[in-house]
Design a protein around this nucleic acid. Structure first.
Length: 276
DNA sequence: AAGTGGACCTGCTAGC
DNA sequence: TGCTAGCAGGTCCACT
């Protein structure tokens, strides 16, 4: 579920509610994708300094008496979502982490358990540093433009859609938004990444930014169970142009949308609007 | 080095 | 109605 827009929507809804919260306790359920790592003796008494995002990761920065005191790196995997509230139901079988604070409880629900909560002393040391080390540029960084994208793709023979999903050129576009951005840019997802011209790279970088920004504005995509920390679903999925629309007419030219498989993932595109 | 395929884990849906 | 195969928003790792 959670690509950059969903993670950012989660961050935006969580940050103002949990900032400054004093930690009263925590509870862990089933193991997640990675082990938690070495927690300090206790989280009790630490304060939540803020919530940041890097790619599809959230960083819950903690402090102790005004000084940085490590934090929790959170990933939502394929099926994760965070809640925050004063009165939560008793934890169910898919609730794997609760952080109880005096402002409310933060809860991670993740049926498939591909998500993670990892303790780290800072983002600059392991384990956080290692997890973030391969990430590409942020799509809203001013340095992400056509020239950057063109240069970063130049040596790649891989198809452009798989190259975007890899996340080491630019972070944030997962399967939905990679498909949508390629549609917006008019680029066939099978095009070898290194064969994308500079003008098209410029259009693609703009399309990635626009697609992700629009999705954030609409609250992300809710295909099954994504919601912000108050439980509100996203609204982007109904405005998708190609994702999960195989066989339906293209909104622009009426040609049926096609589904193919690239790198064991579904790709959706319009064979008329998107060219190599 | 870049690219590919498998693995992780669970739930839902389409089809027989 | 009930079973099975296939599919799902992500990412690491081993191997070529």
């Amino acid at each position: 579920m959670p690509e950059l827009p969903e993670v950012e929507v989660t961050r935006q809804s969580l940050a103002p509610r949990i900032q400054g919260a004093l930690i009263w306790g925590s509870r862990w359920g089933k193991p997640l994708r990675w082990p938690l790592g070495c927690l300090p003796q206790t989280l009790v008494g630490l304060k939540v300094a803020g919530v940041e995002r890097r790619g599809k990761y959230l960083w819950l920065a903690l402090e102790s008496e005004g000084a940085a005191a490590g934090g929790l790196l959170i990933h939502l995997g394929m099926s994760g979502a965070l809640y925050f509230g004063q009165t939560l139901a008793p934890p169910g079988p898919h609730d794997h982490f609760d952080l109880v604070t005096h402002q409310g409880t933060l809860r991670l629900t993740d049926p498939r358990r591909f998500g993670a909560v990892v303790w780290s002393q800072s983002l600059l040391v392991n384990p956080a540093a290692k997890l973030l080390s391969q990430l590409g540029i942020e799509p809203f960084d001013p340095g992400f433009d056509g020239a950057y994208l063109h240069a970063a793709l130049a040596q790649r023979r891989q198809d452009i859609k798989s190259a975007l999903l890899k996340g080491d050129v630019v972070v944030g576009a997962g399967n939905i938004y990679a498909c949508e951005a390629l549609f917006a840019a008019g680029i066939d997802p099978r095009t070898p990444a290194g064969r994308i011209s500079r003008p098209r790279a410029m259009r693609l970088s703009q399309a990635i930014r626009d697609t992700l920004a629009q999705a954030v504005a609409l609250g992300g995509s809710t295909l099954r169970d994504f919601h912000d920390v108050l439980g509100s679903a996203g609204g982007y999925q109904s405005s998708a142009n190609v994702y999960a629309r195989q066989g339906l007419p293209c909104r622009r030219c009426q040609t049926p949308i096609r589904r193919i498989v690239q790198g064991q993932r579904s790709t959706f595109f319009c064979p008329a609007c998107q060219r190599r």
